[in-house]
Every structure is written in structure tokens, then in C-alpha cells.
Simulated assay, not measured.
Amino acid sequence: MTHTISGQMLSESGNFAIVVARWNELVTGRLLSAAIDTFRRHGVAEDRITVIHVPGSFEIPLAAETAASSGKYVAVCCLGAVVQGETQHHDYINHAVAQGLMTAMQRTGVPIAFGILTCENLDQALNRAGGKAGNKGEEAALAAIEMTSLLTKIPGPTDG
């Protein structure tokens, strides 16, 4: 018989951190608003949410890992927007941020949700921050809630 394990989309306990980049604030502000609203709608009171502002997306992994390793948060939701310019700079930033967040999540065992937009232009970013393509801030908050619940249900090595 197949066993299925899945997380719930309601959080009744634990604190959440949101790490958000100030760079491209027109976009990241919308991601942040949607993430906070989503947390609230899914049972996370405002006093259980800490928002950590960093200069840009490149700084997100260090702040996320520091928050995750503090023992104060059940999950960290990361929000940023890297918009392609005339050079390949965005490729280096995107790769470094993704790798840094994955490494931090594996190292700490704390869910770290990836809400970093990687877009070709500002219009595309705005569409993913509440426009035609939804809001990645909402999606990242939902992922954080679901993963927090899911990890409590997966048997560990001592659970047999």
C-alpha cells in the first residue's frame, strides 16, 4: 500500500522570517505585501512574522541562513528581484543566490522558500509581483507554510 505524506496550508504555531531585498523595491515591496497577507490568511499572526531587509538579492542567502540557524524561525521566506541588464551580471547573481539558499536550507534543515524573481525586464517582474502572472511572494509564503508542516510528518531515522 502506498503512503502519502503532505503538508497543510495552515500554520498554528512557530515564527516565520521574511528576508526581502530593498533593490528593485517597486517589485519587492509588492512581493512582501503579498507574502505577509498570505501568512495572515493561513493562520500566521503578525507577531509571528519578522521582516529582515537586506540591500539586494545577493545578500539574501547570508541573512536567510543566519535567521534559519538562530532557532527562532520554523521557516524563512526569501523575496527579491533580479532584472536582466546589458551585461551578464544577473546570471552570476541568480546562480549565487539560488545555490546559497539551497546550501543554507540543507545545512540548517529549516525550509527556505525561494521567492526571487529572475526576469528579463521590469514589466516581466511586475507581472510576477501581482500582475498577470500572479505573485511570487504569495507562492513563497505558501511554500514556507507547507514545508514547515510537511517536515513534521516525515519519519526521522529514530522513528523506525
Rank of each mutant, 00 (worst) to 15 (best):
I5L: 12
S6N: 08
M9S: 09
L10M: 09
E12S: 10
G14P: 03
N15E: 05
A17E: 03
V20P: 03
A21E: 10
R22A: 10
W23H: 08
T28P: 04
G29F: 04
L32H: 02
A34S: 14
I36G: 01
F39R: 01
R40T: 10
R41P: 00
H42L: 01
E46W: 04
T50D: 15
T50F: 08
V51C: 04
G56D: 15
P61Y: 05
P61C: 04
A63T: 05
E65L: 03
A67N: 06
A68F: 01
S69F: 00
S70K: 01
G71L: 02
G71M: 01
K72M: 08
A75S: 14
C77M: 09
C77D: 14
C77F: 11
C78F: 06
G80E: 07
G80C: 08
A81V: 04
G85P: 13
E86V: 14
E86R: 02
Q88P: 12
H89N: 09
H90Q: 13
D91P: 07
I93F: 09
N94A: 15
V97Q: 06
A98S: 15
Q99M: 13
M102I: 14
T103Q: 13
M105G: 11
R107K: 12
T108C: 09
G109K: 01
I112T: 07
A113K: 01
G115K: 07
G115M: 04
I116T: 12
C119G: 12
E120P: 06
N121F: 08
D123L: 10
L126M: 15
R128W: 14
R128E: 14
A129S: 15
A133L: 12
A133N: 11
G134W: 02
N135I: 00
N135L: 03
E138Q: 02
A143N: 02
A144S: 09
I145L: 04
T148V: 11
T148Q: 04
L151F: 15
K153M: 14
K153C: 13
I154Q: 05
P155V: 05
G156Y: 12
D159R: 05
